[in-house]
């Protein structure tokens, strides 16, 4: 089923804050097999000039999956989750995420388009601290296989 184009430009307000913990960063680093001490050792991170352990570049997917998902759950959009695969992903960083960050994000559906038989949808999420400091911007493009019929 074609996705509802009325959703282009729709913005979803800031989510509940996501608290970044050392434990979660360590778990994520272990899962991707990355032994970088800046992800595990607070002293090493502070010696490198960071306030606490930092997170790997793809870590923001952890909270963007949690809150960006809301935009996609709206039944009026017409998205069939069983046919969804990840198409593209991009991160623009102001600075690395670090333990102790309390992050909120505002998500906008920036584009819905047809490519062959697939429907493509792009969500931009602006991530900042609860104090209003910008941290990163994520762009997530998902593909609904066969969605364009």
């Amino acid at each position: 089923m074609a996705l509802n184009r009325d959703f282009i430009g729709k913005t979803y307000p800031p989510s509940a804050p996501y608290e970044v913990s050392r434990v979660k960063i360590r778990e994520f680093a272990a899962a991707i097999g990355d032994g970088n001490p800046l992800y595990r050792d607070k002293d090493a991170a502070q010696a490198a000039g960071y306030p606490d352990v930092i997170a790997p570049p793809t870590f923001p997917i952890v909270f963007s999956l949690q809150s960006g998902g809301e935009a996609l759950m709206d039944p009026e959009l017409g998205l069939n989750f069983a046919m969804v695969v990840h198409g593209e992903q991009r991160f623009e960083y102001v600075r690395p995420v670090h333990a102790g960050d309390e992050l909120v994000m505002t998500s906008t559906i920036t584009d819905i388009r047809t490519a062959g038989r697939n429907e493509l949808l792009t969500v931009r999420s602006d991530v900042s601290t609860v104090q209003g400091e910008p941290v990163c911007v994520t762009y997530n493009t998902i593909v609904e296989r066969g969605g364009a019929g």
Binding site: N36, L38, A48, I54, V85, E88, F91, Y93, R95
Partner: peptide, 11 residues
Amino acid sequence: PGAVVDFGVRF
């Protein structure tokens, strides 16, 4: 890791 300012891929 903090030196990476932009990172994007297509799957």
